[in-house]
């Protein structure tokens, strides 16, 4: 079940929290929302989950509009809000039953489903406790369990891994990946490696607008433009000789020796060209030993910083 967001705008007073955003999420896609605080990620999610009406624009979930069919849409969405609010006075099992009931999950299958979810999110040891007595990580698991309890076709997770320890984070990411095979997932996060680990596609949002959209590979390529290689030529005769030989190659734009290393260089190729073959052949000709040749990728952090500041 896909989501189509059309010209979505949400104003809080004079401020535009979301400013004319349009994008599409296909069935079975895992999309990550990235963006600094206050960029409009949470507002967009609140609109898709029918909690708030947009000022302008529309969202179509599986062909239904949030403006007209919110009741039906809500049944198909599992939502984990940002601060993970829960009824602290309720025991875990009772709470999950309440949510499953509300979402209209078939009564005769509820117990089985709850047992499944408890197992899946690793809540077995804590299931009889009141939610308020759980640690933050376990509360987060309850939040995830309640979002998934009615087996929704779409999952919207606002910062799903906050408060979890590293082991749990890995587990939850694995779970999201697993779920993403058949479900449509939108998640938001500040943690960049998380998006790379879990998402098929990244949307970077800044000041209410989408500033980048694509797979992490595509974003890299876009922002990078030219190939950067780290090359180490061992037992190199004279550094200057190597540099002049490198510069004379037709595809190389710039060569920077790395100062504190022995015989290492950063090599920028010309736009849309690759110098790897040339460098290799040159070394063979001159009988130099090529110790290292690594393509240097732009980090997602750098792309993020470029786009949002």
């Amino acid at each position: 079940m896909g989501i189509i967001v059309e010209n979505l705008t949400k104003k809080y007073g004079p401020q535009r929290a979301v400013d004319n955003i349009s994008f599409e999420v296909k069935t079975g896609e895992v999309v990550g929302f990235l963006g600094p605080n206050g960029a409009g990620k949470t507002t967009t999610m609140k609109i898709i989950t029918c909690y708030m009406a947009p000022t302008e624009g529309d969202v179509k979930v599986g062909g239904l509009s949030i403006l007209e069919d919110s009741e039906q849409i809500k049944k198909k969405i599992g939502y984990l809000p940002e601060s993970n609010p829960l009824y602290y006075e309720m025991p875990v099992l009772e709470y999950l039953e309440f949510v499953a009931d509300l979402q209209g999950f078939p009564r005769n299958k509820i117990n089985l489903r709850i047992a499944d979810m408890v197992h899946m999110t690793g809540l077995a040891a804590e299931k009889h406790k009141k939610i308020g007595e759980l640690s933050k990580g376990y509360k987060q698991r309850v939040g995830l369990a309640q979002a998934m309890i009615h087996d929704p076709e779409i999952l919207i997770l606002d910062e799903p891994t906050t408060g979890l320890d590293p082991n749990q984070i890995v587990e939850i990411r694995k779970l999201i990946k697993e779920l993403g095979k058949e479900k449509t997932v939108i998640l938001s996060t500040h943690i960049l490696p998380e998006v790379e680990a879990t998402c098929d596609r990244i949307l970077i949002i800044n000041q209410g607008q989408i500033v980048a959209d694509g797979t992490s590979g595509m974003l890299r390529k876009q922002s990078q433009g030219q190939e950067v290689l780290k090359v180490n030529i061992g037992e190199a005769p004279v550094r200057d000789e190597v540099i002049s030989a490198l510069v004379s190659l037709p595809t190389i734009a710039a060569v920077d020796p790395i100062s504190d290393s022995n015989g290492s260089f950063l090599i920028n190729s010309k736009l849309n060209e690759s110098s790897r073959r040339h460098i290799f052949q040159m070394c063979v000709q001159k009988n130099w030993v090529l110790m290292e040749m690594t393509p240097i990728e732009t980090k997602l952090e750098d792309i993020f910083r470029d786009l949002t500041t």
Binding site: K46, T49, C50, Y51, E71, Q72, K74, K75, I77, Y79, P81, S83, P85, L86, Y87, Y88, V99, L102, Q103, G104, Q146
Partner: peptide, 13 residues
Amino acid sequence: SGTIELLLTKAVS
């Protein structure tokens, strides 16, 4: 506590 958001994003009016 924000639970109203949780409640109103379920299939209820």
